[in-house]
Design a protein around this nucleic acid. Structure first.
Lengths: 105, 105
DNA sequence: CTGATCTACAACCATTTGGTTGTAGGGTAT
DNA sequence: ATACCCTACAACCAAATGGTTGTAGATCAG
């Protein structure tokens, strides 16, 4: 996975409104204006947040009549999780090495 | 975990240089200038990246002589991972409900 | 057809971000 | 003592971010 892709992924998570949107679309079905109704900010602001999530491949939009339905995208989530798992693995390896060193004494 | 805390956490991951630093300090021991030597950018720029990681509690600094040793902080990582796990759980719940609905037919 | 609703997008604004250079202070070594 | 590293921090700059308002195109209801 490219750097730019990961930048977009984590950048997308770095905002409370967007994290909330991710929770919502994980549970139910929301149009952009349906989401917009949940927050005090303008419709356009919510639209931009959805666009950020979309560019990060965390969400897809599907046109239904005049509405645009926002759906969570599992793959995006998994990519982010996999990266953090990788860091965890590095950490555990190191912890293992330290344990080995201590054991040698 | 507060919104601001999560903002800082994911924001910290949203930069390739900082992700690289996280990998490095997971494996070995680096001073700020030791890290700085790895990148083409200025020392001050690397210093700022480390500061961002520090504010996100992903890294700690420890003074040793005139150097400042940068160490990865396991807790920060785990917090980020836990949040993504939460989203995963929401997603799986929903996938389960969909499966249930399909099974009912 | 008309009016209301949903969306897209542009233009604008303030703040933050990622980078630079420069200055200054604390630690080390000769 | 003095010269050399390592770090901290300020000031500055360009670009991105998160928000706004306004305009315009589809689509639906009456």
């Amino acid at each position: 996975m490219g750097d730019a892709e990961l930048d977009r992924l984590f950048q997308a998570f770095a905002d409370a409104t967007r994290r909330d949107i991710m929770r919502r679309v994980g549970v139910g079905e929301y149009s952009v204006s349906g989401l917009s109704a949940l927050y005090t900010m303008s419709f356009a602001a919510v639209q931009k947040h959805v666009a950020v999530l979309e560019r990060a491949s965390l969400v897809t939009k599907e046109k239904r009549g005049r509405e645009q339905i926002v759906r969570g995208n599992h793959e995006g989530l998994q990519k982010a999780r996999r990266l953090l798992d990788e860091y965890e693995a590095i950490w555990r390896q190191r912890a293992g090495r330290i344990a080995d060193i201590l054991a040698e004494e």
